[in-house]
Amino acid sequence: MSEVTEYKKILPEELYRKLDSFVEDLGIDSKDPRKKGYLIQVLHKAQSLFGYLPEEVQKFVARKLGVCHSEVSGVISFYNFFTTLPKGKVNISICMGTACFVRGSEKVLKEFENFLHIKSGGVTSDGKFSLDVLRCVGACGLAPVVMVGDRVYGNVNPKMVGDIMTDCIKLANSMEENK
């Protein structure tokens, strides 16, 4: 466990311990030439724990699996799902799948961008909200679709953005209180 502390910088030790035992449970043989096949799975776990994959987490994973850091960061930069920047407390996702696009999701996205003064992919300066786009969440019947956490808003038009943001602000506040 000594290597666990070696890379710990600012993120909670407890999460590193969880990640460590996740990797241990996979029972990877350090001589297995196919051990890289576990990398993406481990990164998914790491991101679900930390919320994002900053360099310190990348280095931890690299060391743990015995692959070099550049390979780990190369994989992270390739896949859209992985992010090296933290998201906002409340993340708002606009579906930009074809069905939603045809029903006007572009305008909905613009409206959110105007409201939050950030572009898609960005986080507000207070760290409360982030905005991103998704591709087809499988609710095309409700297009355009907006997702806030697990909640799905359907048939969204730009005029509804204010109401959705009211919900988001409530959600962010309740998260603050629970802390």
């Binding site: 096949g37 993406i40 799975q41 990164l43 998914h44 390739f78 896949y79 859209n80 799902f81 992985f82």
Partner: peptide, 16 residues
Amino acid sequence: GTEFSFDIELKYGAGA
């Protein structure tokens, strides 16, 4: 009970 064995595992994409 046959000689045939087969196992299935999951691998995850990451949005590409």
